[in-house]
Design a protein around this nucleic acid. Structure first.
Lengths: 343, 343
DNA sequence: TTCTCTACTGTGAACGCTCACAGAAGCATG
DNA sequence: CATGCTTCTGTGAGCGTTCACAGTAGAGAA
């Protein structure tokens, strides 16, 4: 490390300087920088030493100019901002993705499309080729953005299965149906007879699948499906609270509730408590996600863990593969039942 | 808009194509692109039409290569990941900053430095000149990152006053002390006599200032400062809960609590409720931040609003000014008392 | 007329990198 | 010895911009 890093804002060393310092040509330095194939060990060594001595860092713009890649990817969230503010799942995912990308030395551009205007602006930005690919988080199906980007040939990986899309879109998702089954089986195993459910929005795959899992287990257990036991929410805490109130009105005899997200489950807990029902003694409550919200709840929520770390690393892996020319792929990851105080 | 945008992945039009299409030179197109000074109205028009017809978008890498600017900025969060997961304030700020930057067509790179390793990696990335400036969020003082970046000459704006820094660092902050004063005055105006406080960490400016405001108002009102009425937390919900428990033990006669953050206030509410104290009848609770957590609380929190929109737009404004060569600046914004159910 | 000044325009030269190609060296094979 | 193959290296070109500079044209002043 020489002075120029700490000192004033001198012109940073270029590949040229490194080449001169190492006594080789630009080409050789470039080869070392890009994997080191077809480079003799001696040259390899000399270049690395020169890089260390000069404090050289590659100029990404010059590289991008010629490769045509930007070596950066976008994290696109097309949800209303209230959801982004409320749901810590986004933060977990965001953190996971930045970390996974950091391992490849790829920066993450945050793109929040809360309004129609922003959506347009961002779509233009992406299709202009300013990012190599996009990690998409958008729970609702029929989201035009995925279709649009796919149509423009932009590599894309969605978090959760995007439904109703013409073109093939990669996605990584937890096994929603299986997770739901686990939770409902767990509630039944506690001896509960009247298990209610607050579903997610039914135009999202998560909403549909988790409800399907609930129904399956009821059927398998020989229990009649009672539609008074099912209400639907929109993943927000407030909708969980409202849902629980409706549920208590329609089916006051319920002794358990499976809630399709931890955030809604927080709302359910609040409503139950206000109605004088003790959790878990009177009513057992199971959530879904294992988001930070599950631990923040009182009592702590029993929930279905979505493997967020693996989801984010897989999203990044699939996206990079696709940028590398591979075909779109779907990855389904297993969930896990986490027992806590609420059941 | 011609076919090439919708169709396959053709080579995108360059400034050259636009120039030919408009019947002018590259230089003229470039001038139009960069503000349009010294360009005749006719040429201006022709170029704009050509841009529209060809669907041209500037190649940012080519531009950056020559200007030396990256035209992107980093949003750096040096907090442990638990805090990022728990506190929606970060999301609000993040959203505000992306929006403010979008107005300048500048992308935001998200940098989460939870660990020491990441911190090093990110610092290297930034000092390598890959971003033009940094929006820093780091509550704790003595954070070495600010000093390091400042030393490397990187334009920097902190959210909240960074204390104990040798070099001058720009910052934007709410008027913590004044906000605290407002809240305590409000509590006293309700007739409360024994007002407790859960402070933030006392090595953060927010922690110190809000406590100072509390003390000031007590003194002004002729009330004795009672150290049993004050405990400190770390802004987390759990620390609020623990703080309230300690407070109830030390000073069971308290009839109000001023809590230095909404998240901690949520914890305080939970602890009070468990102890059988009604809010606001028995104990009034005031928060700070007006984060989304304030509305999620039961009962809804009376709090001091930090003007997050203005904070983020000011941070961006000050940062861009600094990139443009201006000196570091400090901006203090007024807070506002928001009355809700908890007082 | 001639000169100067202003408003505008075109042109070459970078910026720092990668890529394709050409060539050199070493070694085995015919 | 020539030939081919593999491994390694250097070189020129070019990626798409902006910038500095050298113009040109027209208006006004001397």
């Amino acid at each position: 490390m020489t002075m120029n890093a700490a000192g004033g804002r001198r012109r940073p060393p270029t590949i040229h300087d490194v080449a001169r310092e190492a006594g080789v040509s630009r080409g050789t330095v470039s080869r070392v920088l890009n994997g080191g194939h077809y480079v003799s060990p001696a040259a390899q060594e000399a270049v690395n030493a020169a890089i260390r001595r000069t404090g050289y860092v590659v100029n990404r713009h010059a590289r991008s100019l010629i490769t045509g890649r930007s070596d950066s990817i976008g994290f696109l969230l097309t949800e209303p901002q209230e959801r982004f503010f409320e749901d810590p799942n986004f933060n977990v995912l965001l953190r996971g993705c930045t970390q996974a990308l950091a391992a490849h030395d790829i920066p993450l551009l945050l793109m929040l499309a809360g309004t129609e205007d922003e959506r347009r602006r961002i779509t233009r930005y992406i299709t202009a080729g300013h990012v190599d690919g996009v990690l998409l988080v958008s729970s609702h199906s029929g989201d035009p953005v995925a279709e649009q980007l796919r149509g423009a040939g932009v590599p894309l990986v969605a978090c959760g299965k995007p439904i109703g899309l013409a073109s093939k879109v990669s996605y990584v998702a937890a096994d929603d149906r299986d997770g739901a089954r686990d939770m409902v089986r767990h509630l039944l195993s506690l001896g509960r007879q009247r298990v209610g459910m607050v579903t997610g929005p039914l135009d999202t795959p998560g909403g549909v699948e988790r409800l399907a899992g609930y129904k399956e287990v009821l059927a398998d257990s020989g229990l009649e499906f009672d539609e008074r036991l099912v209400v639907s929410g929109d993943y927000s805490r407030a909708s969980g609270e409202a849902g629980a109130e409706r549920l208590l009105g329609q089916a006051p005899d319920l002794d358990a509730v499976f809630v399709a997200s931890d955030l809604m489950a927080q709302g359910v807990l609040a409503a139950l408590q206000r109605a004088g029902r003790r959790v878990p003694q009177d009513v057992a409550v199971g959530g879904f996600d294992d988001s930070p919200a599950a631990l923040g709840a009182v009592p702590e929520l029993t929930t279905i863990r979505q493997p967020w770390d693996r989801i984010s690393t897989e999203m990044v892996r699939v996206l990079l593969a696709q940028i590398g020319g591979e075909d779109p792929a779907a990855v389904i990851l297993p969930t896990e039942l986490v027992k806590r105080e609420s059941t």
